[in-house]
Design a protein around this nucleic acid. Structure first.
Lengths: 245, 245
DNA sequence: TAGTGGTCTAGACCACTAT
DNA sequence: TAGTGGTCTAGACCACTAG
């Protein structure tokens, strides 16, 4: 039994593919809402939702009276990033290698509790190590991960790296994650960190802290990664928050 | 004659304010769509658009069957950033001071043209200097700005700093800007740059490149700013791009 | 199983843009 | 002024979640 997609998503995906494949080049106008209604036998509301779908991605720009215009023909990195940021951790066992330095079962201290707005202490698995490419073993970043207890009984008492990783896969898979918050700051690589990352001491680094929340809104995982500056850039598109704000 | 707001924006703003003011605390459920319809005498479509308004801002999370839940009670920095990123340049003459080192009229070279995807060369005003706080004169960042010729006849031939700044205000004001693209990378501060920023040489910096596009989709301004690491952080919320992608 | 949000239709009028 | 997208109504059925 196939999961049937909503009509507006079908339309959105169609337009998306057409734009990516050059059917509508940069600055081209897409069909009007009325035309899309006629072409696909859908209501105007559905056509609008389809257009909103690609507008949200940032491929087109809509202007009252002027039509829907293509403003880029490739996917902004930003859009992939939700998937990517989740995928990144899932890839720890796949495209990238995660050699774990530290693997411990800990409890949040007072400082962390206030920082994370926890009302009660929570247990977590702490993992830290270097993530590197599989093929040439070049270091990508150093990651410290706090994996919070989710279902109380899932963690074995004897904690080893393999179980911890497996646990993380489980947490992040099956579309558990509802949203991700990220924070970027620049930093210097300490000698220690630089050595681990196979880079020069005192060179620039990007520090990325990501918080993964479940669909129920609970913090399930916190990852801090330090990248050598040349290994990381972040790109973003801002649009006016309609009318006000 | 007041510009009457759309009903869904009225609703969105109302809910927004209620959340900011603590009427709906963290994790609280908002009224259901049906209730909002009844309370405000609006159709369900309008109620949904109102809810979408605050969902887009990132204040609530909606789940089929479960309701609309508050996931944060303050405005994410991200949301202000479109306004902020435009405002930042407008503030050059106001809250912050921009002491201009360089002010020139230039033309894009081949390298820039390919980088910016221009088919023809374009003239621009080049401005560079330190932006600093007005009250304590502490440096905020070093900015280089390329301000592209927009209306051919607007620039006086004798270019001085005052006209250039005035021109920039004009470009960015009156809601000309339709979108902003930004890119973040970490870097080291050169001795020269560090001196200008009143910081230590070889300390970490954040490099932010922002491209400002007009509502017609034309690149009107490009700004590169270098911040001392401790002066800048970027925060972001990612949500799954509905269903697919 | 009751109630929520998600999708969809078929209309209507309005505000804006281009020419 | 013609045609576009923006807002809005009043319905309908479906998919999901929680108790």
């Amino acid at each position: 039994m196939q999961n049937k997609q909503a009509k507006y998503i079908e339309l959105g995906e169609l337009l998306l593919q057409q734009i990516l494949r050059g059917h509508y080049p940069l600055s081209a106008l897409l069909p009007t809402e009325k035309e899309l209604c006629a072409q696909h036998g859908i209501s105007r509301h559905t056509a609008r939702e389809g257009l909103r779908y690609i507008e949200r991605i940032g491929l087109v720009e809509r202007r009252q009276g002027a039509g829907t215009r293509v403003i880029r023909t490739n996917l902004p990195e930003q859009i992939n990033q939700f998937t990517q940021s989740v995928q990144e951790l899932l890839e720890f066992g796949q495209q990238t290698r995660f050699s774990i330095d530290v693997c411990q079962l800990l409890i949040t201290d007072k400082d962390e509790m206030s920082r994370l707005k926890f009302s009660h202490p929570r247990e977590y698995i702490y993992l830290a190590g270097v993530r590197s490419e599989v093929h040439d073993k070049k270091p990508i970043c150093y990651s410290s991960i706090q994996q919070f207890r989710y279902h109380t009984d899932l963690y074995a008492k004897d904690l080893d790296k393999k179980t911890a990783l497996k646990q993380m896969m489980h947490l992040l898979s099956s579309s558990n994650i509802g949203r991700v918050e990220q924070e970027f700051t620049a930093c210097l690589l300490t000698s220690d960190m630089a050595q681990k990352l196979n880079d020069q001491a005192h060179s620039a680094g990007m520090r990325v802290v990501r918080k993964y929340f479940s669909k129920q809104g609970e913090l399930v995982l916190l990852a801090e990664s330090i990248y050598p500056a040349h290994r990381y850039r972040y790109i973003n598109v801002l649009t006016p928050a309609s009318k006000k704000l």
